[in-house]
């Protein structure tokens, strides 16, 4: 039991060490990943800004003007619905993008996996980082919106870097696991895609938890992604710690997911040469 535990810890340490050692390569590949995605397209990297921007405008339009959601102005809900929507939507889009892109992060780089002595744990982490680059763009949109509307942002926004790191660790863990499993099970990419399409309705992004019928509320609480969303809403919308448990849960989840993910990755990587 204890030896198995120390082995899984050493997998996580090994992954971390490798990532730190190859940070230059990781950064270079992250830049490439973002560039490659839109390579050969007329607007190029402009798409990495345009894509999330368009989605944000779409959601804001539908829920503000079509469904006419109006909240805010109370002590309970200090800011408007758009702020609420965006503070949850922005991290969710990054998480969802990390998950779906990491599925093909190893599959798509067969040459690096098979033909070189290459630190392949860099591969899933680079797409996670690349996905969060677009998140910075969406975050900027949210901040600009709040500045225009309220001439201020909640002071708790200072905690954003901390939360981002926790989220990155969490996504890196998921990314490693998904990348490794997808090498064997190509269907995972589609499973993740289907899940993330539905997933946006399973996290409290469009609605307030209070609107959920009581019988379904526990689902919201056990959904690990909800806790990340709540943390973001705390610092970007409420401006206070409304969900202290979520902060604890998120941090623990991130650590757990990273250990689990790097464990899965390091255990499965030995077989990559056989399946790719």
């Amino acid at each position: 039991m204890s030896s198995a535990q120390s082995r899984s810890q050493s997998h996580a340490i090994r992954t971390t060490k490798s990532l730190i050692e190859h940070r230059g390569l990781l950064w270079e590949l992250t830049k490439r990943e973002q560039k490659d995605r839109y390579a050969g397209q007329m607007l190029g990297v402009a798409w990495s800004i345009g894509h999330p921007l368009f989605l944000i405008l779409l959601y804001v339009f539908i829920f503000n003007f079509v469904f006419r959601q109006t909240v805010g102005g109370t002590a309970e809900l200090p800011r408007d619905y758009t702020s609420y929507l965006l503070s949850g939507l922005v991290p969710w889009m990054a998480i969802q993008e990390s998950m779906s892109r990491s599925c093909s992060s190893v599959n798509g780089k067969v040459d690096l996996v098979k033909q070189a002595v290459f630190p392949i744990e860099v591969l899933p982490v680079r797409v996670v980082l690349a996905s969060h680059q677009s998140m910075l763009v969406s975050l900027a949109c949210l901040i600009v919106y709040q500045l225009i509307k309220y001439q201020s942002v909640p002071s708790t926004i200072l905690l954003l870097p901390l939360l981002l790191i926790v989220q990155l660790v969490f996504c890196a863990g998921i990314g490693c696991a998904f990348a490794a499993i997808a090498a064997y099970l190509r269907d995972l990419k589609d499973i993740v895609q289907v899940f993330s399409t539905a997933g946006i309705y399973l996290v409290p992004v469009f609605y307030l938890p209070a609107w959920v019928p009581g019988a379904f509320k526990p689902f919201l609480d056990v959904n690990p992604f909800s806790h990340f969303i709540w943390c973001y809403q705390d610092i970007l919308y409420y401006g206070s710690f409304r969900h202290p448990i979520s902060w604890l849960v998120s941090t623990l989840l991130a650590a757990l997911m990273f250990v689990l993910g790097s464990n899965v990755f390091q255990r499965l990587r030995v077989g990559f040469g056989n399946v790719l």
Binding site: D111, L112, A116, V117, F118
Partner: peptide
């Protein structure tokens, strides 16, 4: 260790 198991590792056409 450095290995050339196949040429073109990490090279991208574009």
């Amino acid at each position: 260790v450095s290995a050339i198991l196949e040429l073109g590792t990490g090279f991208q056409p574009d």
